[in-house]
Amino acid sequence: MDWHSFLVISHVIGAVFGAGGATMAEVFSIKALKDGVINETENDFLKTIYFFIRLGLFILILSGFGLLLLYRMEGVAPETIYTDNFIAKLLIVLVIIFNPLLVQAKIISYSVSSPLSLVSWYAALILGAWRTLDASFFSIVGVYLAAVLIAVFAVKYFYEPRVKN
């Protein structure tokens, strides 16, 4: 297997861990919070899922830099790498990185952080897979922000009141 295939496969595995973990975290936390509290077993499940999300993020970043390094050594022109799609994906990965910090520091609530994580992981996954997407940076970020707002709104107004009742 050549380096390019190895790095692409690692990149995909990282994205799968992240997006899959974020989906499971959302589903499990919604199920766990049905009775209003997260018990020890549920907490243990969520901790395991968060570990895989972080592992996915680490693999994704490391393999992403591996690919950039490979392109650098192969002399690939920067215009073909640093596209609007790539820069938007980079911004979304930064959101994924800062999201746990903001929730741990209690700057944003869990009900914002969780859908933000879910949408961001799927956005990164879609942008990574959709190489032929011909859209500007601002239109990609615009759609992403709209998706985040819809997800946060859905959790806050459709799910949270059910938990409280």
Partner: peptide, 13 residues
């Protein structure tokens, strides 16, 4: 570092 690394390949662009 990413920006510098990208700029290093401008010659082949």
């Amino acid at each position: 570092g990413m920006a510098i690394s990208g700029a290093a390949n401008i010659k082949s662009g």
